[in-house]
């Protein structure tokens, strides 16, 4: 039922050297990056806009809630039905699953923006870009990191489902192949490889960025 850890690690190394693991990992990672970028950029913009403009918030709030609660599977199937089994539909399906939670997180951030600092920036006639960069974004940093962390965790899981349902490559596709063969070792080898990649992103990218953003806190 459950192969030894050494067996899984061995299978992973073998797949990496002699099999298609690295290629599949690369393809899946590219989809994760694309969907993550789309979801973060649009979710952040939408969230800030909703946090700042009450009217927009009222108009879109129910839609965000609907999207937030729509099962990932439904979004994926609908995107494939409407736009075909292609890369765009796959990435859009993943991004749409993450976008509303990013928007909700960033909306809270935008609501908590410091009015006093905003007024200071206005009083000193800081430009729009300078305000965004030096006044607004640093305040939103904790919310951005929270959204990025949970986003990464959710997105790579959904990318696997998207691949399983409608793509002919990637980690999700491989896992499905192993599923047909009931090859638990193969399934775990791919899972382990991807967990290592996500962990590496956390260590190499997110944590150093967060330390940099937080260095002013004593």
């Amino acid at each position: 039922m459950l192969p030894a850890a050494s067996t899984v690690a061995g299978a992973m190394l073998h797949e990496a050297v002699a099999g298609p693991l690295l290629a599949n990992l690369g393809i899946t990672l590219a989809r994760v990056v694309a969907a993550f970028t789309v979801a973060m950029v649009f979710g952040t913009a939408l969230g800030i806009a909703m946090g700042v403009w009450r009217r927009l918030d009222l108009a879109l709030d129910s839609w965000v809630t609907v999207l937030l609660n729509l099962p990932a599977l439904v979004v994926i199937v609908l995107m494939y039905v409407w736009f075909g089994l292609n890369e765009w539909a796959a990435i859009a399906a993943v991004a749409l699953n993450k976008l509303p939670s990013t928007a909700v997180t960033l909306r809270e951030g935008a609501r908590a923006l410091d009015r006093g600092l905003e007024e200071m920036a206005e009083s000193f006639r800081m430009g729009r870009w300078a305000r965004l960069r030096h006044v607004v974004l640093p305040q939103l940093a904790p919310y951005l990191f929270a959204a990025a962390r949970s986003g990464l965790a959710i997105i790579w899981k959904i990318v696997l489902v998207v691949e399983l349902l409608g793509r002919s490559n990637g980690v999700g596709f491989q896992i499905e192949s192993y599923f047909q063969l009931f090859d638990v070792t193969g399934i775990l080898a791919y899972t382990l490889a991807f967990i290592l990649v996500v962990q590496a992103i956390e260590w190499v990218l997110l944590q150093p960025l967060e330390r940099r953003a937080n260095r002013w806190r004593r």
Binding site: E119, H134, W216
Partner: peptide
């Protein structure tokens, strides 16, 4: 006009 304001609280950007 360039107006320099000193607010009641310092209102410095804590992250700069």
């Amino acid at each position: 006009p360039r107006i320099g304001t000193v607010f009641q609280e310092p209102r410095l950007l804590p992250w700069r």
